[in-house]
Simulated assay, not measured.
Amino acid sequence: MASITNTVNEGKWGKETEKQLGVEDLESWRNEMYVNTIPWEYDRFRELLERYSKIPPNEVEAEIFKIRNEAWGLVKYPCIGHFTYVKLPEFGGDDIEMQKAIERLRAPDSQDAFLELGGFIFQTIRRLVFEGVDSTRLYGTDLHAEFIELGYKQFRDRETLKATLVAGDLLLPNEEYAGSELACTFDGKISVAHASNFFHLFSWESQLVICERIIHFFRRDLSAKHPAVLFGSHMGSCKPGKTEFFGTFLHDEMTFQLLWDTVGERTATRWKVEMQIVGAATSKPNAYGKDARMVRYVVSQVAS
């Protein structure tokens, strides 16, 4: 397995590395990354709060702003400041992979389990429950335990949600990671994983470590008909490589395939990448450069 040292963890994205993101100039960062109105269509998120969480319609927007502001006070991610997480585009009907995942999870006698990586307040998990998926087979993880708590506050389901949500760092050094709650909870249990606005937060080297650990999350008994699948969307690029501002790595289909080929060689597994551009990067915030593009991807295990 690729290794991460105790002293170098440049791919970790969170409170520990905010200074690397320009957040020390807080006013400038806020002007770029924080908005006072929700700039997107968010009917699916609103529907969750009204019908799943039973929040009165006239209170929904205030509740969204309340939790967003608490989250921004913890970590100043662009997706928090700009309300990216309320879009829920995977449930819009044109994301075939999410529909396939729902079908697998809702099938009679299904034993499949779903994992949300970098789930923030785990809005995707709640939408799956709303779509009729058994929450006992839903798992999620994020670097920040505070986000898990904010999810319970946002969706008001602490007593009813049976999903397993674990805070942890996928870039812990090998020895520490082996005994971590992440490894102990997820290894060998997952059929389908989802990660959006995730990979573009990390360097190439960190992505190698993360992907290898994701592979260990997957069950060993999956079939060619129902293989291990990871899917989602993230910021890619027409000119893949290391970003100037964040120092993270943006992919096109060829480089993402190369990443998974490399990890496949290390784990004696094979993976097929499919990727499509779904839109240009938004003009604000866009710290990823003029060649950045929002892409949708699928990584499927290839039977030996």
Rank of each mutant, 00 (worst) to 15 (best):
C238W: 01
S237W: 01
T262H: 06
G236E: 05
H194C: 11
E205W: 05
F217V: 06
N197Q: 13
F249N: 06
G247Q: 05
A193T: 09
A193V: 09
E205H: 14
L258S: 13
H226N: 11
H226M: 05
L258E: 14
T243K: 03
E244C: 08
I214R: 03
L201T: 09
S203W: 00
I210F: 00
V192F: 14
I214W: 00
K189L: 14
S233V: 11
G241W: 11
V192H: 10
K225Q: 09
I210D: 08
N197H: 11
H200N: 13
S191I: 15
F249W: 13
L250W: 09
K189M: 12
F245D: 06
T262Q: 08
D261L: 08
S203H: 00
E265P: 00
G264M: 07
W204Y: 15
S233Q: 11
M235Q: 11
K242I: 15
A228T: 06
F199E: 04
Q257K: 10
G264L: 01
S206E: 05
S191W: 14
S191V: 15
D221Y: 06
R219Y: 12
L201S: 09
E253A: 14
V209Q: 03
F218V: 02
F217N: 11
F217D: 06
T262N: 09
G264W: 04
C238Q: 09
W260E: 05
H194D: 00
F246R: 05
V229A: 05
H200Q: 13
P227I: 03
G241L: 08
H251Q: 07
M235V: 14
G264F: 01
L259P: 01
L258I: 15
T255G: 08
D221N: 14
T255S: 15
G232W: 07
E253F: 04
A228L: 05
S237K: 04
F231E: 02
F198A: 10
E265I: 08
I214D: 01
A193R: 11
C238I: 07
Q257T: 01
F218G: 02
R220A: 12
P227D: 02
G232D: 07
L258P: 00
T262V: 10
T248S: 15
E253V: 12
L250Q: 15
T248Y: 11
K242N: 11
H200C: 12
F246M: 06
I190S: 04
E212Y: 02
H194W: 13
M254S: 08
E244A: 13
S206Q: 05
M235R: 08
I210S: 08
E244D: 12
V229S: 10
S203A: 12
